[in-house]
Amino acid sequence: MKIFNMELFELFTIPFMIRALVGSILLSLLFGLFGTFIVPRRVSFMADGISHASLLGIAFGLFIGTYPLIYAFLAAAIFGFILAKVSEHSRITEDGLIGILLTGGMSGALILLSFVPGYKPELFSYLFGNILSIQWVDLYILSGFFVITCIILISQWRTLVMSTVHPDLARVLKMPIKRTRYFLFIGTAIALIAGVKLLGVILVSALLITPVLAANQIGTSFKSTIFLTLLIGIVGSVTGLIISYIFDLPSGPSIALTLVLIFIASLFYSSLPKQKKLNS
């Protein structure tokens, strides 16, 4: 199939596109797995909160003139820990705490950035994403994080599921829900920063939330919903990436919009009468 005098398959031979596609797939899988347990806990806002608050880490890195993403990871991990710890026992609701972290982190970031002289083009790429700048070393780190996440998820799978579906019973059964909670929040926070490269701070929450919500419209069991979440994430991010390359559009918003369109399609599908769904 030719698009603008170029065969579509040629896209998959360009090195930076290969890296971008592999990165998209890995991030879709990570976000799909975390999102499955984050969205039902009604902390979806966490994605926005953590990604915006991590700007504090990015601003600090720019301020001292070193690799900002390392400090963004650190800030995200700390905020994830605070979220897991404080919301456990206090009178503050999780969404309230996320709001405080978001505004606190953003405010701190803007103040720090006011001390950094000159135009900051890297800031633009963190805000809106630049998947095409992903390097092989980034992919190796992401792959390692993905493998570690899968190992921990498999070992904690039953606890994660039961603490999401019936938290009281999980505690009666003496499952290690506290440890699992910390893993979930800190792991999601770190994955969110990895996703900042793809979608940017402003839109990274789209990859965490939208596939889960779309899959919930179509899935008929827990197992099928997880599979659909991962599939929708991959299809949405790969399609959005290809569209952004072909039409020279920003990658982050293209992916986010593609996911939103898939969600709208899933809503339409779920509103069909049952018989029509079965026939289709």
Binding site: V39, P40, R41, R42, T164, V165, H166, V212, L213, N216, G219, T220, S221, F222, S224, T225
Partner: peptide, 8 residues
């Protein structure tokens, strides 16, 4: 039960 978990 959360409506975001389609468990049978």
């Amino acid at each position: 039960f959360s409506k975001h978990v389609q468990m049978t």
